[in-house]
Structures are given as structure tokens and as C-alpha cells.
Amino acid sequence: MLACVVRLRPSLGAQYLAVGMHGLVLGAIVLYSAGWQCLLWLLAWLFSALWAGYGLRQTRVKRIKISQQGQVSLVLMHRKTAIPAILCPGSMVRAKVMALQWQTAKGSVHQLLLPDMMDAQAWRRLQVWVRWCQPHKAQPVLRQLILYKVIHWFRLKDNNLE
């Protein structure tokens, strides 16, 4: 596999969705509440809008670097150096969204990726790597465990060892 660097940027689609949803909620608050409840709901709405704006502007992972051997390293916003990472098995890949969970030496990093967060070629390469090209370290252990269980169940012994 060719090495690639995926540079991430904030998603415009997610920002538009957040603005639209907050607009609908603001309309519902104004139309269906009155008095002190309206003020309370407006305060909660303001907090939610500020929190969504802050969350959408902050991309924790700045770059994803994939080496020719299939090893991944993440460049986080608050760091200048790359951190080696392993993709956890619970990650989800669909045509228009990827929910990835990375395991690093410092802990786990959860990431939601949309196609407008990177260019089309980087989106395709990352999807291909996540689905088929990542190194699987747990698979040989699982096969070996199944083999040992079969040997134990059938009480097979290696006659050359005795």
C-alpha cells in the first residue's frame, strides 16, 4: 500500500446540520413555552449552541499518517509529533460516515469523520485502509486459540513429543 497523509478540516455539513437543528429548537421554544420556562429553555439552548459551536470547531486529530507498511500515526491538535495508533475493532465504516476508535499509548481517541472533512482521494484511501489494509494482530491469536481448543476437545497429542 502507498503511504498517505490525511489532513482533516472541520466539516461544513455538520456545522450546517447543527445550525439547522438549533434553529428548529429555537422556533419550538419560542412557540411552545412562555414565562420563566421560556427563559430557562432559552438559556439551555444558548449553552447547547455554544457547546456545539465549540465542539465542531475543535478537531482533535489534525492528521492521520499511514505508512507503506500499514502502520498509523495520529497528529493531534495540541502536539507537533505523531503518536502511533491502532484502530480498534469497534470502528464503523459506511459510504458517507466513518466512526473510528484509535488506541494510543496515552488512551483512546474517538473520531467521527464525514467526507467533507478531507479531499475525495484521501477519503477513499482511508476507507480502503480501514476496511482491508490494516494490520490484524489479534487474528492469529484467535486462530491459535481455536486450534488449541480443538486439540483439547479431541484429546489429540503429538506422539513425537513423548
Rank of each mutant, 00 (worst) to 15 (best):
Q127L: 04
L113T: 01
S33E: 01
A49C: 09
P115D: 04
Q69G: 07
R60T: 14
V150N: 12
G53M: 06
R125N: 10
L2A: 15
G35P: 03
M118K: 04
I146Y: 14
S11T: 05
H78S: 12
M92T: 14
L74F: 03
V72N: 00
Q101Y: 07
V19G: 01
L42Y: 03
Y54G: 07
C4H: 11
F47D: 13
A28I: 04
W45Q: 04
M98D: 00
I83E: 10
I151Y: 06
Y16V: 13
A105Q: 14
Y54W: 15
A52Y: 05
L46I: 09
D119G: 03
A122M: 02
W45G: 00
Q101S: 11
Q37V: 15
G53W: 06
G107F: 02
L56R: 02
V97T: 09
Q58W: 10
H136A: 12
K106M: 08
L42G: 05
V72I: 06
M92D: 10
A95G: 05
M77S: 14
V6G: 00
L46F: 10
A120D: 09
D158C: 12
L46A: 15
R131C: 08
Q68R: 11
T59R: 06
V61C: 00
R124Q: 14
M21V: 10
S11D: 05
K96P: 01
K96S: 13
A18N: 00
S108V: 07
L76R: 07
W41A: 08
S91W: 03
L56K: 01
R7T: 14
Q101W: 07
S33V: 00
L147N: 14
V128G: 05
P84W: 01
P140V: 05
L2C: 11
K65H: 12
M77F: 07
A3V: 06
Q15R: 15
L76M: 06
R125A: 08
G70K: 02
M98V: 01
E162M: 11
I86S: 13
M92V: 15
G13Q: 15
L74S: 03
L17R: 11
A82G: 08
C4F: 15
A85I: 03
V72E: 00
A82R: 04
L12R: 15
A18E: 02
L46D: 07
P140D: 05
V150S: 13
S33P: 02
S73Y: 04
I83Y: 04
G27S: 08
R155F: 05
Q101M: 10
A138N: 09
G53Q: 06
V75F: 05
A14R: 09
W153P: 02
K106L: 09
L24Q: 09
W123M: 00
W129Q: 03
L156G: 09
P135Q: 07
F47G: 15
Q101H: 09
L126R: 02
W153S: 13
V19N: 03
Q69W: 03
V5A: 07
M117K: 02
M98S: 00
L17S: 12
R63N: 08
A18G: 04
G53F: 06
G27C: 06
R143E: 15
K106N: 09
K106F: 07
G70F: 03
N159H: 12
W153A: 13
S48N: 14
S33H: 03
Q15T: 13
A138K: 08
Q144G: 07
F154L: 15
I29K: 01
L50H: 06
I151N: 07
W102F: 13
S73N: 05
F154D: 14
Q139D: 10
A34C: 14
Q139T: 14
